[in-house]
Simulated assay, not measured.
Amino acid sequence: MEISHFKDMYLAELQELVSVEDQLAEALLRMAAAASHPALKNALVDHHAETIAQKDRLVAILNQHGVDPAAHVDQAMEALIRETRKMLGILEGDDLRDAGLIASAQKLEHYEIAAYGSAAALAGQLDLRNDQAMLHASLEEEKAADALLTEIAKGEVNPDALAA
């Protein structure tokens, strides 16, 4: 597919984000099932619900623009999730697995932060203020999820993994 207009590039970015959220929603449930620390398990489950809401926001934006939300598959997210599965398969012990889960989850979150930040900036350039506000809300949720994972890692999971 060739893109020749700025707005089309923006809409393609949103379609990619729908794919990101779809893939992440599934991965978060698998990650929560693998987690042993209650705070980590809860954070992953809570972020799953937030991920569904973020996808719904994206679909609403794309519907307003008359664009099919499911037109793209984000290959970068596929690769990040594949790496997460690989990591979980080689880590031994609950504490070490939880530390690996956080490291992997933060890679996923950082990718989303970059994607939402870019999409919000594109919306701003297009003077699509409602879109921009919705994308910024998701961006802030992603930043908060990342901060919570850092807090759980520093306060509970990593010290336990180090002591194991």
Rank of each mutant, 00 (worst) to 15 (best):
M1D: 08
E2W: 09
I3Y: 12
I3W: 05
H5C: 10
D8P: 01
D8K: 07
L14V: 01
L17A: 14
L17G: 01
V18W: 00
V20P: 00
Q23R: 01
R30S: 14
M31R: 05
A33D: 14
A34C: 03
A39G: 05
L40G: 02
K41V: 07
N42E: 15
D46F: 09
H48C: 08
I52Y: 02
I52M: 11
D56K: 13
R57Y: 05
I61L: 08
L62A: 07
Q64A: 15
H65A: 15
G66Y: 06
G66N: 05
P69F: 04
A70D: 13
D74F: 09
M77V: 12
E78N: 13
A79P: 03
E83T: 07
R85S: 08
K86Y: 13
G89I: 05
L91E: 09
E92P: 02
G93R: 04
D94L: 06
D98Q: 03
G100P: 03
L101F: 08
L108N: 09
S118I: 03
A120C: 09
D131W: 04
Q132G: 08
M134C: 07
L135G: 02
L135M: 09
A137K: 11
K143R: 15
A144D: 03
A145R: 00
A147Q: 12
E151K: 15
I152E: 02
G155H: 07
G155R: 09
V157C: 06
N158A: 12
P159C: 12
D160I: 06
D160H: 12
